[in-house]
Computed example of a mutant assay.
Amino acid sequence: MTSVDKPTTTASDQQRQDSGDVKAVTEAALFEAFGGVRGLIETVVPGLLFVTIYTVNKNLHAAAIAALAVSLLLVAVRLVLKDTPKHAFSGVFGVAFGVVFAMMTGNAKDFYLPGMMYTLGLALAYIITAIAGVPLIGLILGPVFKENLSWRTRNPGRKKAYTKASWAWGLILLAKSAILFPLYWWADTTELGWVLIALKIPPFLLAVYLTWVFLAKAPPPIDVFAEMEAQDKAEKEREAAARQGEA
């Protein structure tokens, strides 16, 4: 094959490749930050088990104990597999708070109340931090992308994407809360439980998808860890050169 026949990489080809790399990295980072498929399962299963048992026998204690037991089992599986247990642990705490609330009041609907309050608080946190110019999604994903807070002052396009994503998360969770809280007062336990289960995954996937869209179109992150390593290497080289000059 002659040099004329050899395929060449054009600027547009390189741009498409870079864009694909950014999208792949963004997708991987989102999966890491939010737990991926297993994280979704760990979020849904305890509540699903609670509402199923309560729907069948109306036994609050049995439903609560079963939900807590399966949460602990999910943590144990993570530990046995030596996988990151943070998402399973967060599920245990959420279920434990729900069990305590429900047991204290004797009202099975209160099993869902801590999670609902958390969702509302998180929605407000996303919106408030976006307004304040320190979008929460950037604080969450910055370390995952190894950019920390560099996006705040050095990467305005990325800050804009994080702000849009935080607004998306906040409004989606706020809409979810607007559906659940009236049901908490008006619906019975099983109706509230099944609606809550139905609203577990779709809003989350929508928020993750919008985050992926915003970040995939944003400038690539600045790897501050690589910068620090380069600075350390350059400093060591200067010190070595200085010692050689003195010798």
Rank of each mutant, 00 (worst) to 15 (best):
T26S: 07
L205M: 13
V56W: 13
L205F: 10
L215Y: 04
L74P: 11
Y112R: 09
P135N: 11
L40W: 05
K58A: 13
K176E: 14
E191D: 12
I172K: 09
F34A: 06
A242S: 09
F50N: 08
E147G: 04
R238S: 07
K58S: 14
V195H: 01
M103A: 11
R152D: 03
A28K: 14
E239S: 13
I172E: 08
V25P: 00
L199N: 03
A168F: 04
R154E: 13
L124P: 02
L72Y: 11
V70M: 11
A161T: 06
F111S: 05
F214Y: 14
G121V: 09
L122I: 15
T52E: 11
P156R: 05
A165Y: 00
A63W: 04
F101P: 05
M228L: 10
K86G: 02
L180Q: 15
W151I: 00
L206F: 02
A207Y: 01
E227W: 09
I41K: 00
T55S: 14
E246D: 09
T55H: 10
A125S: 14
I65D: 02
S19G: 13
F101C: 14
T153M: 03
A132G: 15
Q17D: 08
L72N: 05
Q244T: 05
P85A: 09
D18H: 12
